[in-house]
């Protein structure tokens, strides 16, 4: 059996999720042995038009990028959204809170009306084409990445946690960030990161997106106990979870 052909593509993003693939270090040699990487602009000069697995990083922010991702979808048997920009729109969706002409004016001033600066509302990949699997996080977690790829190679369906970050945070024995007066949105955010930020004494800011059935009553209790308002919570939720669709 020939090795599955894998291609990696990027749209509007920081390319930090691709970097996590490079950061597999020695393990990347095993990965290259198991699959045939046919296109990866950031690392290779080769290109291809057929792939079994397409990994798509970044948000879709322009009409021409919608067309490009549709072509990728047509050519790919399996399409995986890689990282928060692709899975939920990520920080790029902060732009959607403003009038788009005003956003361009703010950054480009007099040049704002030039046609190549056209921008549209930021979309996650699945708002444009069907997505088969999502690897969450900003950036993605390297262990979760290899787990998902391994599942795909074995024909299995990867299991992504559908419980909040608090579960992993408590298991690590961390003191709750709320006790320090911080607004941590771990109670409503999908786990799977190993509560990496709270374990560094940094509040969860929601890069893996909202879980599908957050325990809103519990979240309300926590807010009441710490005297926080909806506005406080909104400030934090908007960072990564603006206008977000389903995350599984």
């Amino acid at each position: 059996m020939s090795k599955p052909r894998v291609a990696i593509f990027d749209f509007a993003c920081c390319e930090g999720c691709q970097l996590q693939i490079v950061n597999l270090e020695e393990e990347i040699l095993d990965l290259i042995g198991a699959v045939d990487v046919v296109e990866w602009r950031e690392a290779m000069s080769e290109q291809s038009t057929e792939y079994d697995i397409a990994l798509v990083e970044g948000s879709i922010t322009r009409p021409e990028d919608e067309e490009r991702v549709k072509v990728i979808r047509q050519r790919a048997k399996v399409l995986v959204a890689l990282g928060a920009c692709a899975t939920i729109g990520g920080v790029n969706k902060l732009k959607n809170h403003f009038d788009l002409d005003e956003v361009k004016q703010c950054v480009y001033g007099e040049a704002a009306s030039m046609p190549h600066l056209a921008t549209a509302m930021t979309k996650a990949v699945d708002e444009v084409v069907p997505v088969d699997f999502k690897i969450h996080g900003c950036p993605i977690d390297r262990t979760e990445f290899t787990y998902v790829i391994r599942c795909l190679l074995l024909g299995k369906t990867p299991v992504i946690p559908d419980y909040p970050v608090c579960v992993e945070c408590k298991a690590k024995g961390n003191i709750c960030r709320w006790e320090y007066g911080e607004v941590c949105i771990g109670p409503i955010i999908r786990a799977g990161c190993g509560a990496r930020c709270p374990s560094s004494n940094f509040r969860c800011f929601g890069c893996r997106g909202l879980i599908d059935n957050p325990n809103l009553d519990a979240a309300r209790d926590v807010m009441d106990r710490y005297g926080l308002t909806v506005e406080d919570l909104k400030q934090k939720m908007e960072l990564f979870c603006s206008k977000q669709g389903p995350t599984l």
Binding site: A12, T61, V91, V103, K104, T119, K236
Partner: peptide, 17 residues
């Protein structure tokens, strides 16, 4: 490259974000 408009997006955000 697709522009991402960071200078516009930071407006209204808190100093610690």
């Amino acid at each position: 490259e697709a522009p991402r408009f960071f200078e516009a997006m930071v407006r209204g955000r808190r100093w610690d974000d």
